[in-house]
């Protein structure tokens, strides 16, 4: 692979300091792209390490209600995957330095990739693309120096883990529990066991997501994994603020400060 990726560099730096990664997720274009840019910059200032940017899709089967509604609001505004790429270019032009991971479904990604290089994107996570279907995706991303992040689920049998690990670069995403994205009242009891069963198969950093909505759950994840992802819980804060006609920035900032246990 070409020079060390932004994601790898970030984890190297965190590792040197013994620090865990905070990986927030934003649905791009909710409520509009300007706000997404402002939220991204705020997250960088507040100490986020990687930004996951969701590409709005009409049929998000892996997402819970919060992310579905966010995607729908963005689509209602006419936000396209192309607009998301332009927003990323704008972030890069204005000095945004966090690694950016596109969180997307297969179908819009096929269209995006057909149109040319994904400038400014450091990694891609495709929710509905297991490695068995990912040959083309992998060769495209390898050639472009983009990390490919796959997900390991609680249902993943032991004998599949090596393939997920080999296909992943940057980090491996650990799905905390069965189900769609969205905050849970509690993380599963076997979270620690789930993370530790992956360790022997990979030296990649392990980031846990799905269902982390409180400081306690973030702290529990940080005690066992290398990073934690916060998506729907942040999305819900943004949704409430927007619903009340407010700028979501202050509320989102306050939420991020309250949840980050590091």
């Amino acid at each position: 692979m070409s020079p060390t990726s932004r994601i790898v560099e970030r984890f190297d730096r965190l590792g040197d300091r013994g620090r865990k990664a905070f990986v927030p997720y934003l649905t791009a274009g909710d409520p509009d792209l300007e706000t997404t840019l402002a939220l991204a910059r705020m997250l960088e200032r507040e100490g986020a390490d990687i930004l996951e940017l969701g590409v709005p899709f009409t049929d998000p089967i892996a997402d819970g209600p919060v992310n579905q509604r966010a995607a729908q609001r963005a689509l209602d505004r006419g936000v396209t995957p192309g607009d998301v790429l332009q927003a990323i270019a704008e972030l890069r032009r204005t000095g945004f330095e966090l690694p950016i991971v596109l969180f997307t479904y297969s179908n819009p990604l096929l269209r995006l990739q057909a149109r040319g290089p994904l400038e400014g994107v450091d990694g891609i996570l495709v929710t509905d693309l297991p490695p068995e279907e990912a040959d083309d995706h992998l060769s495209r991303c390898r050639a472009a120096g983009i990390d490919t992040i796959f997900l390991a689920a609680p249902t993943t049998p032991e004998n599949r883990i090596p393939r997920l690990a080999e296909s992943s670069t940057g980090f491996l995403y650990v799905v905390s529990s069965k189900g769609v994205t969205g905050a849970r009242t509690a993380l599963p009891q076997d979270l620690e066991a789930q993370v530790s069963r992956l360790r022997p198969h990979t030296s990649l950093p392990l980031c846990v997501g799905f269902g982390i909505g409180s400081r306690d759950s973030a702290a529990r994840v940080c005690s066992v994994a290398d990073g934690y992802v916060v998506g729907s819980a942040l999305g819900a804060v943004i949704e409430v603020a927007v619903g009340e006609g407010n700028d979501p920035l202050p509320a989102a900032q306050q939420f991020v400060r309250s949840i980050d246990p590091r």
């Binding site: 892996a62 297991p130 279907e133 249902t155 993943t156 599949r160 799905v175 189900g179």
Partner: peptide, 12 residues
């Protein structure tokens, strides 16, 4: 054809 699904559904 194929199976373009979230990882959680691969085993089922």
């Amino acid at each position: 054809g194929g199976a373009y699904v979230p990882e959680t559904l691969v085993a089922p």
